[in-house]
Design a protein around this nucleic acid. Structure first.
Lengths: 288, 288
DNA sequence: GACGCATATTTGTCTGACTATATCAATCGG
DNA sequence: CCGATTGATATAGTCAGACAAATATGCGTC
C-alpha cells in the first residue's frame, strides 16, 4: 500500500513544487511586524517554583504543554467528555508544532486523562479513569487548590496504609534505612517544619519508611503519601495553628521501628496521622 | 512567523481540495500487486488475547511499541541504567518513523520508566521510580510471569487496603452500588470462577466496592486490587486446587456492606483476602 | 591542576505530506 | 419502509527530512 506512492509520485511532486513556489513567494515578504513576540510564549513558565514533586519534563516544550493541559483538565477547564480542538488548530493556536502537541497528548493519554480516536478527536475521559496516584498528576492537582474531599480522601488513604507500612517496616527495615530515617529525624529536630530543609526531611522520613516495607507496590504509594504529608504542613503553616509539635510523634515511630516493635510502630503511626488529619481538617473547615 | 498561515489559508485549502480530488481519482484503481508484505511488521500483534486490563492504545503503532518496550524493561531485557540505542537507529531498525518511536518513549517516560536527555540518550531509570501502580504498567508486568515477591507485595497491599475499603463502603455505598454488587455476586454464583464471565463479575465486585468508598484516591487502587484478584484465580485454576470456594466469603462481605455493618465488612473482607493469599502462596511455593 | 571553550552527539522541534480509521449520510436493495 | 452497503469527510496516526538546542567530553590554555 505504500507503492502507489511511487506511482503518484510524479503527479504529486508537481503539486508539491507548485505549492512550494507559492509558499516561498508569500514567505518572501514576511515584512509584517516580526514583533518581538519572543519565544513561542506563554506556558514556558513551566514548572513553577513550589513543586515538591519531581517534574519530569521540565524545560521541554511537550512537557510544559502536558503540564498546562493537565492542570486545566484537573481544574475543570475541560470537563469529562469535552473534545479538544483538533491537533492542527490546537498546535497552531499555541504556536507550536504538531509533533510537540501530539507528544503532550500522548503523555496525558498515558495517564488516562484523554483518549484520541480518528474522526472523533481527543476527548477528556471520565474522571474515575485518570491515574490520580501518578506523581505528576498529583503534582498538577496541587497547582490549583484541590477540593476538600480530595484532601480528605488522601488522608484516609494515608490512615489506612501508613500504619500498616510502619508495622511492616519495623520487621523488615535494613540498617541503612534506619540510618536514613535517623538522619532525617535529626534534621527535622534541628530545622523544624518551618524551614524548607525541615519539610524535605519530613518527606524523606516518610519516603524511607515506605521503602523499608520492601514491598514494591506499597513503596509506589510513597509519592501519594508524600503529597498528603506536605499538604498538612502547608495548611498548618497557612493558619499559624501550631496545634501540636508532630516531631515527637515521628521520633516515637522511629524508635518503635528501630527496635523492631511492629505493633508499637503501627500504633504510633496511626496516632501521628490521625493528629495530622485533625490539624488539617481544623484549618480546612472554617475557611470553606 | 505563524501569521503567514492565516494569509495562505485560503490558498492552501484550494490545494487541499484539488489534491483530494486527484487522490481519490488515483485511489479508484489500486490495481498493482498489493503484495502481502502486510503491515509494517512484527510488534503489531499488540495486545494479545488475555489482557484483563484496559489496553489504552491498542492498534496504534506507538502504543504497540510502548507496550513492547515496557514489557522488555519490566522483564529485565533492559536493566536500570541501560541506555537505549539512539532514536534514529532504533526507529530505523524497527522500521518505523522517528515520530512514532518518540511518542512511544514519551509514554514510557510519563510512567517514569525512562528518562531522555540530549547528548546522553534515553536511559532506563531506577526500578523504584516506575509507577507500577499504573494500570498499563501492571498489565505489562503480567505479560511475563512476575516475580513471587511482587505478587506477595500485591497481596499485602490488598490485605491492607481492601478490608478498610470494605468498612468505608459499608458506610457510604449508594443503593446503585449495592445493586451492582448484588448483580455481580449473582453472576459469580451462577457461573462460578471457572468461566470468563464469572471472573469478570469477581473483578466487577471488587471494583465497585472500591468505588463505593467514595474516595478517589482509594478508588484509583482498584486496578491494582483487580490485578491481585485475577492473579489469584489464575493460580488456583492452574493448579486445580479448589481449596475452598470463595464465593460464600464474597456473599458475607456483600451482606455486611448491604446492612451497613462496617466492622463486619472489614472482618469478612480480611478473611477473604487472607484466604486468597493462602491459596496463592500454596500454589506458588512448590513450583518455584 | 583548574578552568573555559570547541565539538560532537543526541534529543527536541519544526514542516509538510500521506495513510488509516471511524462516523455520518446517502444510496440502494429487500 | 427498513436495513445494509457504500461513499464522503474529518480527524488522528504515520512518515520523511531538516534544523535547533542542549550538554557531556575532550582539548587547550592559563
Amino acid at each position: 500500500m505504500r507503492r502507489k506512492a511511487q506511482i503518484t509520485g510524479l503527479i504529486k511532486n508537481n503539486f508539491v513544487k507548485y505549492q512550494r513556489k507559492c509558499h516561498a513567494l508569500i514567505m518572501r515578504k514576511p515584512t509584517l511586524t516580526d514583533n518581538k513576540t519572543q519565544h513561542p510564549l506563554t506556558f514556558t513558565p513551566a514548572t513553577g517554583g513550589h513543586d515538591m514533586f519531581r517534574a519530569a519534563f521540565q524545560g521541554r516544550l511537550h512537557g510544559a504543554l502536558a503540564h498546562n493541559l493537565g492542570v486545566q483538565i484537573l481544574g475543570g477547564v475541560y470537563k469529562s467528555g469535552d473534545i479538544l480542538p483538533n491537533e492542527i488548530d490546537s498546535s497552531e493556536s499555541l504556536d507550536i508544532s504538531r509533533s510537540a502537541y501530539r507528544e503532550a497528548i500522548r503523555i496525558l493519554a498515558s495517564k488516562g486523562m484523554v483518549e484520541s480516536r480518528p474522526k472523533i478527536g481527543t476527548r477528556v475521559t471520565e474522571r474515575d479513569r485518570w491515574n490520580i496516584l501518578d506523581p505528576e498528576v498529583l503534582g498538577w492537582m496541587f497547582e490549583t487548590e484541590p477540593s476538600e474531599d480530595f484532601i480528605k480522601g488522601l488522608f484516609e488513604l494515608r490512615l489506612i496504609t501508613e500504619p500498616a507500612a510502619a508495622a511492616l517496616a519495623a520487621e523488615r527495615r535494613t540498617t541503612d534505612q534506619i540510618e536514613r530515617m535517623r538522619k532525617a529525624l535529626e534534621v527535622m529536630e534541628a530545622e523544624t517544619l518551618a524551614s524548607e530543609a525541615g519539610r524535605m526531611a519530613d518527606l524523606e522520613f516518610h519516603h524511607t519508611l515506605m521503602f523499608a516495607t520492601h514491598n514494591e507496590a506499597l513503596a509506589s504509594l510513597s509519592t501519594t503519601i508524600g503529597a498528603a504529608v506536605s499538604w498538612t504542613t502547608r495548611y498548618k503553616q497557612r493558619h499559624q495553628s501550631l496545634s501540636r509539635d508532630p516531631i515527637p510523634d515521628h521520633a516515637r515511630v522511629f524508635e518503635a521501628i528501630e527496635r523492631g516493635d511492629a505493633s508499637a510502630a503501627r500504633w504510633c503511626m496511626e496516632s501521628l496521622v490521625r493528629m495530622a488529619l485533625e490539624d488539617t481538617q481544623k484549618s480546612m473547615s472554617p475557611q470553606t
